[in-house]
Nucleic acid binder design. Sequence first.
DNA 1: ATCATTTACGTAACTAGTTACGTAAATATA
DNA 2: TATATTTACGTAACTAGTTACGTAAATGAT
Lengths: 320, 320
Amino acid sequence: MFFNQVGKMALGSRLRMLSERMTEDAQLIYQLYQVDLRPKWFPVFYVLSAGQENTITAIATAIGHSHPSVSKIVREMVAGDIVVERKDESDGRKNRLELTPKGRGIAARIQDQYLDVNRAVEEALAQTHHNLWKALEEFEFLLSERSLLRRVQQQKKERESKKVKIVPYEPRYREAFYSLNEEWINTYFKMEKEDLETLGNPKEYILDNGGHILVALYENEPVGVCALIKMKNTGYDFELAKMAVTSRAKGKGIGSLLGRAIVEKARSLGAKKIYLESNTQLTPAINLYQKLGFKKVVGPPSPYERCNIQMELELDNPTR
Amino acid sequence: MFFNQVGKMALGSRLRMLSERMTEDAQLIYQLYQVDLRPKWFPVFYVLSAGQENTITAIATAIGHSHPSVSKIVREMVAGDIVVERKDESDGRKNRLELTPKGRGIAARIQDQYLDVNRAVEEALAQTHHNLWKALEEFEFLLSERSLLRRVQQQKKERESKKVKIVPYEPRYREAFYSLNEEWINTYFKMEKEDLETLGNPKEYILDNGGHILVALYENEPVGVCALIKMKNTGYDFELAKMAVTSRAKGKGIGSLLGRAIVEKARSLGAKKIYLESNTQLTPAINLYQKLGFKKVVGPPSPYERCNIQMELELDNPTR
DNA sequence: ATCATTTACGTAACTAGTTACGTAAATATA
DNA sequence: TATATTTACGTAACTAGTTACGTAAATGAT
């Protein structure tokens, strides 16, 4: 059958189809009990007969419809002499609803129908191994905890991050090192004098001074970079800097992979303390640094204008 | 929450709502993968990309939609450059469909999406006790075996048959005995001379000759009757006759209750063999007689025109 | 007391499906 | 070979919901 082939992508369709099948039968069931209601009136009718709510919006929230839907249903029910409307005296906006004598008659007669439908469904469910009613409840709960979208996003991230490789810098990544950094700097700030020099000459400014650069490859394309710059006479061993991930490769966990790799690199070089400068506007970056264990500090004055937060990470007793 | 209060009557609504919630997310998921498809196109797209079917009606049956639905979806997909149409050469009615290069590109890119969605849903389902996917399958199967309507009908019958009382004839049921029989005779045939006499004078024609009459009461109203008429010199003890149930009280199992009661009565009177006459047009009646154990026989000639079948039941060795 | 905001609800237009119906081509039948 | 039936599919109109928007009443803030 179609659904078993397509898989879970079609869960929505499958639910819709079963639902349609049930409402079709519902139509006939009302006839069976000679209850002069249309299935789509039922939720509204139920709330009114239970005496719970009696204004359009309140009913809509109670039954999980939009208010225009309730508005239309009520109009039909008024035409069918099931419900009467009357303006609220103290609040002229509200449309108070009430069952007519005919409506109350139906409410009495429908009790047997409730009973029989409940029993019929329960009898069917009792024959199943996986109870549909309970399954719906559980699934609805799971989705309210975390939406399907977020669950899929996470799967995507997990799958794609497996395709990310972190490799040491090589001269052929010089262009990428520049442009990846330029991309984010120009999005949020503007390039400064220091940027042009350091980014243009990573070998001279970073590697030759005892620093390191890691590059993240996705399908063999450089999509992220990060550098460790040697620091002297500051109490820090390295500055974590020039961290950049292209927006094209978002949602693949690249920042996190790169961050963990660069910290690991520092650790393997015997570093005890690393430092970084950033800007609080860059929330995802700050979140990442916190996850890596960095704590806010007041450090030495920065040459960069865009720096408004400084952080450090002690490696003697790493948090992770 | 609403659904737990209303109970299983709202199963249809609940399914519809979950389905809507899922399709909303689906929209966003397509965006996430930059797949230029609308969720409602998906089933058609899937069938085409799998190379299974490629005409409107065939796709419609495969995915369980109506053909106009597929027709409209295809029109949209053509506008979106996903699909091209071309007339079948040998059969001018058929509209052969094919993915465009763009469509094939999407088919390739969507693979990852299948994977992630499947995993996301399966991961969620794994956290539930009642698996929604399997529950749907089981429930769909149960409904295909016996529809919800029939299940409800049965519950109704069971509940209502408990309110039916079978009591012996009393003079105050004389009117009912006549009119209940008149009702069905006039619906299918017409009243004959014998009917007028026997039905008008049950005491004289039936009871005083050693016969018996049972009356079915529903909410203290007579809704069915049935008689045992003493037979002599025929090899039979009684004729089961004048069985009538008003159409107003259909679907309450009254015929069955009355039938079993009258057979029981005959048995308690020491009868060995009962006889009856009927007409094959009255299928529900014939079915009932068969359930009670009656077998077709060729009996003595009947005084009634409408009789075209004769049956007997041996009580020495009752089937039930 | 006045003005801005929020709330209640109706109307209009849209969506994703449906059924009903018509037409042309293909197939079956006399 | 002519005619009836079936099949494929498009169009129109309907259904049960939605979102978008407007208006009047109530409420809150200055």
